[in-house]
């Protein structure tokens, strides 16, 4: 009952700020709205009894990635409207591409049989102990592979940063 209201509030907040990311004029505002979207999603995680995911979501996305975004956007000085109007065919192409993505997504969700979680509190999958067990038993190889992927990205970044010495 009470959680229902919170769910509605969070959903409205997520959708509204997601729209505002696109609609707002200043890039900084877009970044901040994106952060708000992340917080709303973190709230959803909490409603699903996945506190660990929620907190990690906040730490990683809101706390680190969006701060870096903000950091870059601040330094870029995008306040002046330097964007030249795009030609019509670019807009049409973008519309078609975006529309196709949306259609695909709708198709996926229509065909997918969503199991209804009657009582999210009964699942313990989002808690840190269970999540850790799943990650390190069932999905050990994908987990390690993704960490190697991250390592590659880091090495690549360092390489790009030092390119004058090569």
């Amino acid at each position: 009952m009470f959680t229902q209201y919170i769910f509605h509030f969070l959903s409205v907040m997520a959708l509204f700020s997601a729209v505002m990311v696109l609609a707002s004029k200043k890039p900084i505002h877009s970044v901040l709205f994106l952060t708000m979207t992340f917080f709303a999603i973190a709230g959803h995680y909490v409603l699903l009894n996945a506190q660990f995911l929620a907190v990690v979501h906040v730490i990683v996305y809101a706390g680190a990635i969006m701060v870096l975004f903000l950091f870059t956007v601040m330094l870029l000085n995008l306040n002046k409207d330097e964007r030249s109007p795009k030609p019509l065919w670019v807009n049409i192409m973008a519309f078609i591409a975006g529309g196709m993505l949306m259609l695909t997504l709708i198709g996926i969700f229509r065909g997918y049989d969503i199991q209804s979680l009657q009582d999210p509190m009964s699942t313990q999958i989002g808690l840190v102990k269970n999540l850790g067990k799943i990650l390190y038993h069932d999905y050990l190889i994908p987990f390690e592979l993704s960490s190697v992927l991250f390592l590659t990205a880091m090495v690549g970044a360092v390489l790009l940063g030092k390119k004058e010495q090569i």
């Binding site: 506190q51 660990f52 907190v55 990690v56 906040v58 730490i59 809101a62 706390g63 680190a64 701060v67 808690l127 840190v128």
Partner: peptide
């Protein structure tokens, strides 16, 4: 049950 992570989450928003 994730008290420390909560503290860190708040800390990371602090900026």
């Amino acid at each position: 049950n994730i008290g420390i992570l909560y503290v860190f989450a708040i800390l990371s928003i602090g900026v």
